[in-house]
Amino acid sequence: MIAENEEYILGLLGKGMREHERGQMQYRDIKIEIGKIPHAEGSAMVDIGNTKVLVGVKLDVGDPLPDKPNEGALITGAELLPLANAEYETGPPSPEAIEFARVVDRGIRAAEVVDLGALFIEEGKVWSTFVDIYVLNYDGNLFDAGTLASSAALLSARMPKYEDGNVIREGSLGKLKTKGMVTSCTFAKVGRNILLDPNANEERIMAGRLTIANDENVIRAMQKGLSGSFSYAELSNLIDTTFDNSKRLRSMLDSAVGE
């Protein structure tokens, strides 16, 4: 892949333009599809522009965490698959992949998307919920795509049964018990501009990145990345922008999971 010419992107921004003819606070087209992987208890594919992310949710019987003996566990992982981008490499997860998984994890955990208390089975046995984020095609803004797909996969997941030491994953099953819903908005600082939903070219030249995950009017997780800074006023505006945009994201999630 050829590196983006910073001058060009900045020049466009100077003229009030952006690649793919969109406004600075405008998302690309978003598509949410659930149930792509019926073998997983829950799954969702999310497209934001050319970014394509697949999340699979599996539930297994496991040990509780020592400090939370009565709660299920939530384990979130992300893979920047080498087929998603010429620059991704095979090998152990990069710091970027780990940060990505942890930011998504914090949002779904803080918003209590999964009711971990309902995942207790018996003394020393709980359900572990594995959320695996698979990046299939990279064109920027993985965080929002990952959070949307994780929410959609969890909200539509089946709940396996545990009977006589066996896990039953098929047949008539209820749904995974969920409490909240979370979406996020990610902004890139490019020059003096702030852009919602940065694409890959914009991310390559951004100085700073900010992700705000929220659940209606409650902020659930935030993450500022890279060396660039944001002012108080900018942060305050971006929280408002996030709350605004999340209404549409939430309603897209609602219609995708059929509620």
Binding site: I37, H39, A40, S43, L54, G56, V57, K58, L59, D60, G77, E79, L81, P82, T90, P92, S128, F130, D132, Y134, V167, R169, E170
Partner: peptide, 18 residues
């Protein structure tokens, strides 16, 4: 060439990635 199975690909339990 890299062939890999997703950790959520099987109807059975979650598998380790890598």
């Amino acid at each position: 060439c890299r062939y890999q199975m997703a950790p959520f690909s099987s109807l059975e339990e979650h598998s380790r990635s890598g």
